[in-house]
Amino acid sequence: MKVAIIDYGMGNLHSVLKSVQAVNDCGADVFLTSDPDVVVKADKVVFPGQGAMPDCMRELREHGLAEAVLETTGSKPFFGICVGAQLLFEHSEEGDTAGLGLFPGNVVRFADGLKDAHGERLKVPHMGWNRVSQTRAHPLFAGIDDGERFYFVHSYHFAPADAALSLGESTYPTPFSCVVGRDNIFATQFHTEKSHHAGLQMMKNFLAWDGCC
């Protein structure tokens, strides 16, 4: 089994690679690639991202990888991480950027002046550990407790037009969608590669996943 981690110059690529390799007990060939043909021929695809969405979208197109992402999301297990998940939506408020349009909906910025339950101001970006409620069952949640903590770094979040896309929510200070998926696509706003045991378990589940819900 070949597992391609898409390298378009953005994201914690080596951290993602090491995290997948750490749970690779099935003998998969896990590698970084910026070659669209190699991505399309892989059995599974991981799509990481970090940074500003306009930059990520530009780099994706300049590397000729946008078409490869669109093709692979239609046929094989696909895991998007952080901006790699945001890029799957139609549009982002960050730089007024068009996404790949695989999921209906937008990526929106957290409002200014957010406060927690004690009246303390919340910073944007939302950074650090936060709990994730599993709103729908999914094979990639296997062995992960509902309400488990994952690591976030983001100023923008998913706003799916179809509520059925949302698989998990976090709170800052109100609920927002942080896990989305449909058919063979699964994507998280948080960084699995920085989320210790829970993140590793999720990636291990991905390696075992056949792309069915």
Rank of each mutant, 00 (worst) to 15 (best):
F186L: 00
K76G: 02
A4Q: 04
V40S: 03
C26A: 10
M203T: 12
T171V: 15
N184M: 07
F110G: 12
G105V: 06
K76I: 00
F186E: 02
L17R: 13
R136C: 05
G143T: 12
L207I: 01
D145M: 02
G105L: 07
N106T: 14
K115L: 12
E169L: 14
P173T: 11
F89Q: 09
I185P: 03
V38Q: 05
G119C: 10
A208E: 11
E94Y: 06
I144R: 08
F89P: 06
D116G: 14
V46K: 03
A111P: 09
R61S: 03
A52G: 15
S92M: 03
S166Y: 01
D96V: 04
P173D: 07
F110M: 11
N106P: 03
A161E: 13
G105T: 04
E71L: 00
S177W: 06
T135A: 12
C212M: 04
H191C: 12
Q189L: 13
V179Q: 05
M127Q: 14
K76T: 00
V132R: 13
P125M: 12
S19F: 10
L140W: 01
G168R: 08
S170T: 15
F141T: 07
H191Q: 11
H197G: 13
M202K: 10
A4S: 02
D210R: 00
K204T: 07
I144V: 15
D37C: 00
A208H: 14
A163Y: 06
I185W: 05
T174M: 12
H196F: 08
T135E: 14
V20M: 15
G181V: 01
T33G: 03
L13W: 13
V40T: 07
K194P: 13
K115M: 10
D37P: 01
G211A: 01
Y156L: 10
A52P: 13
L122M: 14
F186S: 01
L165G: 08
A98H: 07
F103S: 03
R58K: 15
C178W: 02
P77K: 01
G11E: 08
V3P: 03
L32T: 03
Y8C: 06
E193K: 08
L114P: 07
G11Q: 06
F158D: 08
A198Y: 06
C56A: 15
C82A: 11
Y172L: 06
P125A: 14
G113L: 02
S177L: 08
K2Y: 00
V20Y: 08
A68P: 01
K115S: 11
F89E: 05
G119P: 09
D29A: 03
A208G: 12
F78A: 02
L122N: 06
A161N: 09
T188P: 13
H63V: 07
G119H: 11
F89S: 09
G181I: 00
A142W: 02
L140F: 02
L88R: 05
V16I: 13
D55I: 10
F190T: 15
G95H: 04
D183G: 02
E94R: 06
R109F: 05
V45F: 01
A85V: 03
A85L: 10
D146C: 05
H197Q: 15
D162T: 09
S195F: 08
G105R: 09
K41Y: 00
D7G: 05
E94K: 11
C26K: 12
K204M: 05
D43F: 00
E94L: 04
E169Y: 14
N184F: 07
H191N: 08
D7L: 01
Y151W: 14
F176W: 11
A159Y: 09
